[in-house]
């Protein structure tokens, strides 16, 4: 037996459990409950009510990605700078929460923000009025940033760490101000990491369903929640599939677009 045949169980499993299921999504998206071909599912989700949910998801995912980049870039830059002798352990500390189940992290965040939660109790104890936090869009955004921040830091850090430090020193020697060193040397060289970070934050953010549901007790309704409802509570798999298909195409398109910005995939994914 040829050695390449050892890969056949793997190939079979991947085709059967990743490719075939995706074909089922396409099939259900283009059929009605009786199994006849239709495009009604798509005309249904083209209504303003559905588009508004999609718009909200995209908007929140963009805000979340922007915030993660704003907070995460300096974090990665400082970690990669040579100022800290224990930088390696700091990196581990920042990455550890990434491995914690996101529901647990969201749950922990909920505890802080609830009406009678830790934050509001603290505020009241010093005589300030409490805030209504859970149920607002801000709470959902906070939950998302909290969950996805490490995914932005890691790829940027990896790229910056690999950067040749003498290039920065050369720029400094040639009279660059620190700000210009960052804008003319560091930023352009870290683009692959930024692209990779944006992908890793935006993709899960735009399809999240449990974070929004938990952080807003159902007040903020995103595409992920809609897909969940169609499959779990409403049992209308055809419409659910058409929404999933639209999301999948959207994500494949954005990955393709980001690949164009970073053709060699230098940023590397997590793996």
């Amino acid at each position: 037996m040829k050695r390449s045949w050892y890969a056949s169980p793997y190939a079979l499993w991947m085709v059967l459990f990743t490719v075939v299921p995706l074909l089922f999504v396409c099939y259900y998206a283009f059929t009605d409950a009786a199994g006849a071909f239709t495009t009604a599912n798509f005309t249904k989700i083209a209504q303003p009510m559905y588009l508004l949910v999609l718009w909200d998801s995209l908007r929140l995912a963009v805000y979340c990605t922007a915030l993660c980049l704003l907070i995460g870039y300096p974090t990665a830059y400082f970690l990669a700078s040579r100022d800290f002798s224990r930088a390696q352990s700091l990196v581990v500390l920042i990455l550890v929460p990434m491995w914690m189940n996101f529901l647990l992290r969201t749950y922990a965040m909920m505890t802080l923000l609830e009406d009678n939660g830790v934050l509001n109790t603290l505020l009241r104890s010093i005589g300030l009025p409490g805030f209504k936090l859970i149920g607002t869009e801000g709470a959902v955004l906070l939950g998302m940033v909290y969950n996805y921040l490490p995914f932005m830091v890691l790829p940027i850090y990896t790229v910056l760490k690999k950067m040749d430090y003498s290039v920065i020193e050369a720029a400094e020697d040639l009279g660059c101000s620190p700000i210009r060193v960052v804008s003319r040397v560091v930023l352009p060289m870290s683009i692959p990491g930024v692209v990779s970070g944006i992908t890793m934050v935006f993709m899960p953010a735009v399809t999240t369903f449990s974070i929004s549901r938990l952080m807003s007790s159902g007040m903020v309704y995103l595409v992920g929640d809609m897909i969940e409802d169609y499959f779990i509570s409403m049992n209308n798999r055809n419409v659910g599939s058409s929404i999933s298909l639209v999301m999948l195409v959207l994500i494949i398109l954005s990955i393709g677009f980001l690949r164009k910005v970073d053709p060699d995939n230098q940023g590397g994914g997590l793996w």
Partner: peptide, 10 residues
């Protein structure tokens, strides 16, 4: 690359 929710429903 497929979002988890799409993998799940598929």
């Amino acid at each position: 690359t497929t979002p988890d929710i799409v993998t799940g429903v598929s």
